[in-house]
Amino acid sequence: MKKVAVIVQDGVQAFGLGSICEVWNEPYHPDDDNPVFEFSVCTPEPGRVRGSSYDLFVEESLDAAADADLVCIAPKRGYRAHHPAAIEAVRAAAGRGAYVSAHCTGAWLLGEAGLLDGRECTTHWRYGAELQEAFPEAVVRPEVLYVLDDGVLTGAGSAAGIDASLYLMRRVFGARTAATAARRIVMPPHRSGGQAQFVRTPVGQVEAETLSPVLAWALEHIDEPLPVDRLAAQAHMSPRTFARRFRDETGTTPLQWLTSQRIALAEELLESSPLSIEQIAGRVGFGNAATLRHHFTQALGTTPQEFRRTFTCLEAG
């Protein structure tokens, strides 16, 4: 992936566009060796593009997306209506094998291009039912942060757009590159796509202290068995109260959270260490290579061995 193009239209939302730029349009930094992309913002009719917060002057036409490796769709007000040329540009990008990414309600453009049919996708939780109604052949998952299905990435919007972009960067360039980018923009290096878009109870409304210290403790002991009752004891709660509080505060279950953290650590070790698959399985708390392989393949669609081979080749290249 070398070239990234973002399609904007009238009504473009500033934060949605900005979150895409934040991940993919950063210049070279002397303190890391992350890739620098040829990045462009383009529009069906170059010139003034009216925005939801401020207007833009966009010089690039949709020709900029014609050979892009990643074509992003910035969300806009009036999300049901899209320029026919923008629809065709996205359809053509997917047809030639480029990645296509839609932020928030940008998913409507994907639907108009026929790219959601039969695919899992998401959008902002407010619009999930509406997206499903508009495109009944799509498999809409309004509860999750992001979904990547056969080269088509959709995100929940707002900050989750950054999570979605970092996930794609992780899949293409590896955990180390994505973690470096996340650190630069002061974001968590990995939030699982299956994590809920919002928590049911804001942290400020619960009587107990945040679970952050327990999560930090769990990461320090991730190579050990961490059943709910052990985590609950660390938090000085009953297992039932802890499980409820955990979901309220994090949007996921303790088991799902631990599994995603263990997979993320396994990715980093596969890239950066000479440890065997069996050793990595023990280091991240899966116990054995078979269990690591099961969870890793389920989450990433590839085996630990194939993952290591891919990113070893990338570094060598």
Rank of each mutant, 00 (worst) to 15 (best):
E26F: 06
T123M: 12
M237D: 02
E133R: 15
D55N: 13
H29E: 13
S52C: 13
L56G: 10
W24N: 07
K2N: 12
Y54W: 15
T310M: 10
Y28K: 15
T252M: 07
Q9V: 09
A113Y: 05
L231D: 00
P44N: 14
A233K: 04
C104V: 06
R200K: 14
A299E: 14
V140N: 01
Q298H: 14
G155R: 05
T43K: 11
S212L: 09
D223M: 03
T180I: 11
H236L: 04
V23A: 05
L116N: 07
P35Y: 07
G285Q: 09
E267G: 05
V144S: 06
T43W: 11
A134I: 06
G111Q: 06
A299V: 14
D63V: 09
T302N: 02
G285W: 04
L226W: 01
V49Y: 10
V23L: 06
E112Q: 13
R247N: 01
H294V: 11
S212A: 08
S260W: 05
G161D: 09
V203M: 07
E207W: 01
Q205A: 12
E26W: 10
I87F: 07
R170M: 03
W24F: 15
M169C: 11
R200E: 08
V203W: 08
P189R: 12
A181Q: 11
Q305I: 03
L62C: 04
H103C: 08
G47L: 14
A181T: 15
D32G: 03
A178I: 05
A65W: 05
L270I: 04
T210L: 02
G128R: 06
L145F: 00
F173N: 13
N34R: 15
V100D: 05
G287H: 06
M169V: 15
G51F: 10
E315L: 10
F15V: 12
L166T: 01
L292H: 08
G118F: 05
I7Y: 09
G157V: 04
T291K: 13
V214K: 00
H82S: 06
L166Q: 06
I162D: 01
V228A: 01
D229K: 03
F173A: 14
T253Q: 11
H103L: 12
R141I: 11
A233L: 03
R262C: 04
I263A: 00
T259M: 11
W125G: 01
Y127M: 13
L17D: 03
Y79N: 10
Y28H: 15
E271V: 06
T250G: 00
G128S: 03
Q298V: 10
S212R: 13
N34E: 13
T250V: 05
F135H: 11
A218E: 01
D31S: 12
S158H: 09
V12H: 07
V152I: 14
L255I: 11
G285A: 14
Q279N: 12
H83C: 06
P189V: 12
T105M: 10
G51C: 11
A181H: 11
L226F: 03
C72N: 08
S276R: 15
T253N: 03
P142L: 02
P304M: 10
S53P: 02
G204P: 00
A290I: 10
S53D: 14
L145Y: 05
A5Q: 06
V140E: 02
L115Y: 02
E59A: 13
H221W: 07
I7V: 14
A129T: 08
T310H: 07
W257C: 02
